[in-house]
């Protein structure tokens, strides 16, 4: 493990995971802002940044291919094991996850909630991941139907619109909390480096993800 090179740090996210995260993040922002003009005429001036609503709709389609294609492909070409482990992990719920979620509101506002040791992803992170995964799948499927509307039954196209909007609202709402916790929350913002260079401090790993930290530590000792 590369962690050996940094005694006070542990590798949380591999390069492949970080590429997936940032491709998803940047393309989501571009899709969100190029899509705002059709959400409400109030946001039409935003589209001037892209050169008008008609240019924005083309950018929206080009970026959607990156949004769907690159992250989808990373499950097969970039540190694939970690991608699948993440997917499996967020669909596996334990009592400790639920207890973290229950204590989370207090944590969110800067208090200290009581919850048992957490794995690599805590209950809150699993919810964020689930919203992102389900939101991405549904926004992609509905988007494909809207893009190629003449090839689909009209009723299906009509249902794609609310599904596309619902997915957007879910992901945009989760994103606000995600950015706050990553950049502005005094306790959890220590995790940001994990998505920048891959490493988090041993101290952070031990206090926030003890189950995971102990497991990778034991694995190292066993080797």
């Amino acid at each position: 493990m590369p962690a050996q090179q940094h005694p006070d740090k542990v590798l949380r996210f591999t390069k492949g995971e970080r590429i997936s995260h940032w491709v998803h993040a940047i393309s989501f922002f571009l899709l969100l802002f190029t899509g705002l003009g059709i959400l409400s005429p109030l946001f039409l001036p935003v589209e001037n940044i892209f050169g008008g609503i008609q240019v924005a709709r083309i950018i929206h389609r080009i970026v959607s291919v990156i949004f769907m294609g690159v992250v989808g492909a990373m499950f097969f070409i970039g540190d694939t094991r970690y991608h699948w482990e993440w997917l499996k992990s967020v669909f596996t719920w334990t009592k400790a996850d639920v207890q973290h979620v229950l204590a989370f509101p207090k944590e969110f506002f800067g208090g200290h909630g009581n919850y048992p040791p957490q794995d690599k992803y805590n209950g809150g992170e699993k919810i964020n991941s689930l919203i992102t995964i389900l939101g991405s799948v549904f926004i992609s499927l509905s988007g494909i139907i809207m893009w190629f509307a003449p090839s689909f039954p009209p009723a299906l196209v009509r249902w794609a619109y609310p599904v596309h909007d619902l997915s957007m609202f879910m992901m945009a709402t989760a994103l606000l909390g995600h950015i706050y916790l990553a950049l502005l929350h005094p306790d959890s913002r220590a995790s940001l480096s994990g998505m920048l260079n891959g490493f988090v401090s041993t101290k952070f790993a031990r206090s926030h993800h003890a189950l995971w930290y102990d497991r990778i530590n034991n694995r190292q000792k066993g080797m």
Binding site: M168, F169, M170, T173, L176, G177, I179, Y180, L184
Partner: peptide, 17 residues
Amino acid sequence: VGSVAFGGAAAAVVVGV
């Protein structure tokens, strides 16, 4: 509902900060 949820999350972040 989506707008209220988004607004609520934004308010929660401000309160959190």
